[in-house]
Structures are given as structure tokens and as C-alpha cells.
């Protein structure tokens, strides 16, 4: 075939055939990797949950309160809420997956709260902060552990005594916003859910 003077039919054929082959190759790859990708994402989330709620052995997603939780959280995005249970099925606490704006984009994290509403820890899942500046904040033990013990029922007061990292205030505030949102969700939604659950038992 003369490739410089191809007829339009030949051109259409070339593009259509390439696309068809590419599409089928991609759908095969997608099928092969789909389960594994879902597994990995779930594993990453469970690992974060276990990090902040070490006593729990099972995490059950709470789906019907997400909307009211989102209202309570304000501008931060609530991704999921997990009820953390121990081996015997007792409530240990709550895991809230929340995304709050940092400097470079949303910081996705899991905030753990125990059954009294105290923050047990914060674990970052993904972020896009400046490498070496904002990212240092999220890796800093000193910074991340200061949220432990904040009282979810009175989180605005707790949040006043907070230390941002110099040079990365926006990244620091991003994490703080996420913890605040999780506190509000606990105060307005989860604590009520907890009492309701207690009555049922």
C-alpha cells in the first residue's frame, strides 16, 4: 500500500482497526488487574484503620448516616465511616475517612475516635503536598501525634491549642481541618448513633 496516497477508506480502516485492537487489549488488562486493584485499595484503607484503632479487629462500613455526617463536616469531604468492633463484637470506636484541602490538593486521611469520642490517631492515605515541605508535616510523628486525645464532643476548644509546622501552615491546617470535621461528625451523628445502639442492646 502506498502510505502517502491512501484512500479515505484505507485511512478509516487503519484507525478503526488500531482502536479496536487497543480497546480489546485494554479490557483484558483491566479484567486481569481489577480485583487486585480493589484488594490493594481496600488493604490500604484497612491498614490505616488498624493504625488508628489498634484494638479493633473488624471494621463495618456505616452507610446510612453518611449524608448527615457530611452536613456536620462542612467543607471537608466525608468518604466513609467505619464502626470498629473488637473480637467479641463490642464497639471500640469509629473510623472516619475524610478529605480536607491542604496546599496541593485534598489530603485523604482516616481519623480514629474511641467510644468516648476521643481522637485515637490520624493516618494519611494519600496527599499531594509539596515534596519535602508539606509532605514532611505528614511524616512528622511530633505533628501527627498531637491530635491524639482531642475530645470529639468539644473539638473546637481542643483545636485551639494546636501547633502548625513552620513553613507548611496550609498542609498542617489541612490535617487539622480533617480532624475537626471528624470531631463534628462524632458530636452530631456518631454519638447519637452510639446511644441508639446501646438502647437496642
Amino acid at each position: 500500500m502506498d502510505r502517502a496516497n491512501a484512500t479515505s477508506g484505507q485511512m478509516v480502516m487503519a484507525v478503526v482497526l488500531t482502536c479496536a485492537v487497543a480497546a480489546s487489549a485494554l479490557s483484558i488488562t483491566y479484567d486481569l488487574t481489577k480485583d487486585r486493584i480493589e484488594e490493594q485499595e481496600l488493604a490500604a484503607e484497612v491498614a490505616s484503620l488498624e493504625e488508628v484503632l489498634s484494638e479493633a479487629s473488624e471494621f463495618i462500613a456505616v452507610e446510612d448516616s453518611l449524608e448527615s455526617a457530611q452536613d456536620a463536616a462542612g467543607e471537608a469531604d466525608i468518604g466513609a465511616i467505619y464502626r470498629a468492633e473488637s473480637d467479641s463484637g463490642d464497639l471500640v470506636g469509629w473510623g472516619v475517612r475524610v478529605a480536607a484541602r491542604g496546599y496541593g490538593g485534598p489530603i485523604r486521611m482516616v481519623v480514629g475516635l474511641d467510644r468516648d469520642g476521643q481522637v485515637t490517631g490520624v493516618s494519611i492515605i494519600t496527599h499531594s503536598e509539596t515534596p519535602g515541605l508539606g509532605s514532611k508535616v505528614l511524616e512528622s510523628q511530633e505533628f501527627m501525634t498531637q491530635f491524639g486525645g482531642w475530645d470529639g464532643l468539644d473539638i473546637d476548644v481542643a483545636a485551639k491549642g494546636y501547633d502548625a509546622v513552620i513553613g507548611a501552615t496550609k498542609s498542617s491546617n489541612g490535617v487539622r481541618k480533617g480532624v475537626l470535621a471528624a470531631g463534628h461528625v462524632y458530636a452530631e451523628v456518631l454519638s447519637a448513633l452510639q446511644e441508639g445502639g446501646a438502647l437496642d442492646e
Binding site: M1, R3, A4, A6, Q10, M11, A14, V15, T18
Partner: peptide, 8 residues
């Protein structure tokens, strides 16, 4: 390279 027309 022999079957792909130059224009596309």
C-alpha cells in the same frame, strides 16, 4: 509502518 497511511 507499511499499513498506516501517513495522514492518520
Amino acid at each position: 509502518r507499511h499499513v498506516v497511511p501517513e495522514k492518520v
